[in-house]
């Protein structure tokens, strides 16, 4: 019975949304309702995720493990953010400044660390594998891409150098196009499988 109900809901919503592309005006009211439900469900899922995260860190703290200091910081930050958000609301300058002056530097620092980590990972790869064709290709592609992005490589316009540069610039796009084609075909097939109830992610 549960399966039948889930399949029925899936088919109804899926086919209705699909039909909305063909008959947007006629199906506008019901599509609005579906979107509202979807957003509500997403909000609920986020709340459940936050609940599990908090529960996990509370259990880590209660176990008195060595690394529970970070869990304490996380819980304190979470509670303080909730309290400040409830007091000042989302639009208040204090809350906005808090977000901008805390979240921005933290995320930007993480990105900077990521760049350094990737750099050292490339060294480690070469030191582990040695000079193999793949490591040489990786190094060459990384250096050329960095040089192109920095605008340091310029071989003139209209000549063979321009052709080579254009070729090098288009080279990553070839791979990107292939990935996009694969993703598009994969999405289409997965959508059809779900609509035809061959794939049942909701029942697992």
């Amino acid at each position: 019975m549960k399966k039948i109900l889930a399949i029925s809901i899936l088919l109804f919503i899926g086919l209705t949304v699909l039909a909305g592309y063909l008959f947007p005006q006629e199906l506008s009211p019901i599509l609005s309702l579906i979107i509202d439900w979807g957003i509500l469900l997403i909000g609920t899922a986020v709340l459940i995720g936050i609940g599990y995260l908090i529960k996990r860190h509370i259990s880590l703290i209660s176990q008195r493990e060595k690394q529970n200091f970070l869990s304490i910081i996380l819980l304190l930050a979470f509670i303080s953010t909730i309290i400040l958000g409830l007091i000042f609301s989302f639009n208040h300058p204090v809350f906005t400044d808090l977000m901008i002056n805390v979240q921005y530097p933290v995320e930007t620092s993480l990105l900077a660390i990521l760049a350094v980590v990737l750099l050292t990972a490339s060294f480690r790869l070469i030191s582990t594998r040695g000079w193999t064709p793949m490591s040489i290709a990786f190094l060459c592609s990384a250096v050329i891409t960095l040089g192109l992005d920095a605008g340091s490589i310029y071989l003139g316009s209209g000549g063979a150098g321009d052709v080579i540069l254009n070729f090098l610039r288009r080279l990553p796009l070839v791979g990107a196009r292939g990935i996009l084609l694969g993703m598009g075909l994969g999405g289409l097939i997965v959508g059809l499988r779900v609509l035809l109830t061959i794939e049942k992610p909701y029942g697992e």
Binding site: L119, S122, F123, R124, I126, S127, T128, R129, G130, W131, S135, L139, A142, V143, L146
Partner: peptide, 14 residues
């Protein structure tokens, strides 16, 4: 840095 480090790492491996 990437080129120098890679050469250094490759020599270490060798």
């Amino acid at each position: 840095v990437m080129v120098i480090g890679a050469i250094n790492a490759g020599n270490q491996n060798g």
